[in-house]
């Protein structure tokens, strides 16, 4: 019981740092003067949310919640490639 209380308190104390860093990345998404700035900040927000999902699955003691983080990380890479392909060749497709 002492170990469980210690780990739960440790994770809850670390949570406000995530809210601050998510807000700062969101400020860059709103302010960015070009499209590539915004896509880079979305990239960073997504990988940050993956880490937050891992911590919360230890806190809630449910084991199947970690699988959603893997899909989130892979689809964020695909968005990068789409926007880069549009900007470079002015057309999307084969």
């Amino acid at each position: 019981m002492a170990l469980e209380n210690f780990i739960s308190t440790f994770i809850v104390v670390l949570l406000p740092a995530f809210l601050i860093s998510l807000s700062l990345y969101a400020i860059r998404v709103i302010k960015g003067p070009s499209v590539t700035d915004m896509v880079l900040a979305i990239d960073c927000i997504t990988y940050d949310l993956c880490f937050l999902m891992g911590l919360l699955s230890i806190l809630f003691k449910i084991g199947f919640l970690m699988v959603a983080a893997l899909a989130l990380a892979l689809w964020a890479y695909v968005l990068d490639v789409y926007v880069a392909k549009y900007l470079e060749a002015r057309e999307v497709g084969d």
Partner: peptide, 15 residues
């Protein structure tokens, strides 16, 4: 791009 970020925020709400 804004719509994609909104989808990420809603997916986190479903989580």
């Amino acid at each position: 791009v804004f719509s994609a970020l909104q989808s990420v925020a809603f997916a986190y709400a479903y989580y």
